[in-house]
Computed example of a mutant assay.
Amino acid sequence: MPSPNQTNTNSLPFLLTGIPGLEDLHIWFSIPFCFMYIMTLLGNTMILLAVRLDKSLHEPMYYFISMLAVIDLIFSTAVVPKLLGVFWLGSREIVFEACFIQMFFIHTFTAVESGVLLAMSFDRYIAICNPLRYSTILTSSRTIQIGLLSLARGAAVMTPLMCLLTSLPYCESRVIPHSYCEHMAVVKLACADPSVSDLYSIIVATLLVGTDSVFITISYGMILRSVLRLPSQEARLKALSTCGSHICIILLFYIGGLLSMYLQMFSFGLAPHIQVLVADFYLTVPPMLNPFIYGIKVKQIRRGIFRLLEKLAGLMFSHAYKGRRDAQRARRSP
């Protein structure tokens, strides 16, 4: 017989707390999150436009960077607009289906990003260790296939988890002590035993992150061995510099992800708002920083962005000049 606080229809909405214990400061927290979201949109859009419009960037490495830009845009858009709605408007309610759709996007594209980072390490391995065969091994079509395979893998492993979670009965007290539908915070509201979904999520996370990180480590181990065999120090530094931005993104993704995950699983005596803020920053800071890391580290991306900005400035100048000339003609005409 169901308990009094259990509902048989999963039709009731969830309520997002925001940052527990700091609700009075929501308006102030909204400022950095809004700024980061705007910078994320601008930075990643600039990367996509630069790669799209500059034919010299139509190479596998830059296609992978474009994939990361798309993932970052999806990450931020899945979380920040609703988060700002909670902070600004007190719009705490999120319908049952929307909550799990948000969760699906977050987890799926976390897995997709891990796959793309693995593909990028393979790209760097081929470029440095076997450069003569680079253009034959990594063609544009094969790069797109790798991206689609990463997307299919992420969706395939996360769909069963969503089915398990949505099939659980949830209690009538549906307050999520978080600013988005974080997996572990939502599962705690279930009125049934979630051990199957917990076991599945742990196995999937361990296999995905563990396998990808092991292969990335192996790739960079082989890259380092090849680089150390180069005859001159200049050649070694040049080869390693091409990997610098990728290594920064990898560390930001995996270290930040592990920190966020373990703080959700084990509180370590930390206040709830610390756990929530770490999870929020993990989903908002890397998407903002990634375009700047590539813009600073990758010379070709930087040049492509500058050329794009020059074109935009030229278009704006020509449009303004044309408007001024038309206005002058209008004043001269009787």
Rank of each mutant, 00 (worst) to 15 (best):
P13S: 07
L48H: 04
V80N: 04
F64S: 06
M103I: 04
A235Y: 06
F306G: 03
I47H: 07
R124Y: 06
R331L: 10
P32N: 02
L89T: 08
V227H: 00
I296Y: 15
M316G: 00
T206C: 12
L49R: 13
L49T: 09
V278F: 05
T45K: 01
G85V: 01
S219T: 07
I202L: 15
C191L: 03
P4D: 03
L240H: 04
V278Y: 05
T159A: 14
N5S: 13
Y254I: 11
R303Q: 13
M184R: 13
S333C: 07
G314V: 03
D24R: 07
L312T: 02
L117W: 09
I74H: 02
P291G: 02
A239Y: 08
P287T: 01
S267E: 02
F317C: 06
A111H: 09
D24W: 06
S267H: 14
T217D: 05
F75S: 07
P4M: 00
M162N: 01
T139F: 02
D123G: 06
A78F: 02
F75Y: 14
M184C: 02
T211P: 00
S241Q: 12
A320P: 00
V95H: 10
E93N: 07
L259R: 10
P291Y: 01
E310L: 10
I274K: 00
A69G: 01
I146V: 14
L42Y: 12
H178E: 01
V196N: 11
F253A: 12
A185R: 10
E93C: 09
L22W: 11
S241Y: 10
N5A: 13
S213W: 08
Y200V: 07
I250K: 15
D24Y: 04
S260V: 09
A313R: 11
V214R: 14
G244F: 11
Y63L: 14
K322I: 00
A190M: 04
S11P: 09
V186E: 12
V214W: 13
M158S: 05
W88Y: 14
A152Y: 00
C243T: 15
L289E: 00
L258A: 15
G21R: 05
G257V: 04
K297D: 01
C248S: 09
L42F: 11
L12I: 02
R331G: 00
G221E: 07
D54Y: 01
C181Y: 03
L168E: 08
A156R: 05
C248G: 02
F35Q: 02
Y254L: 15
R133W: 03
V86S: 03
R142P: 04
K297P: 00
H273W: 15
L149Y: 07
P169F: 11
L73A: 04
T166M: 15
V175K: 10
T7F: 06
Y125C: 08
I305W: 01
H246T: 14
A119C: 14
L149P: 00
L165C: 14
T206Y: 04
I106A: 08
C181G: 09
S201R: 11
C129E: 00
G154R: 04
M103V: 01
A327L: 08
S66I: 02
G295N: 05
P272L: 05
L138D: 13
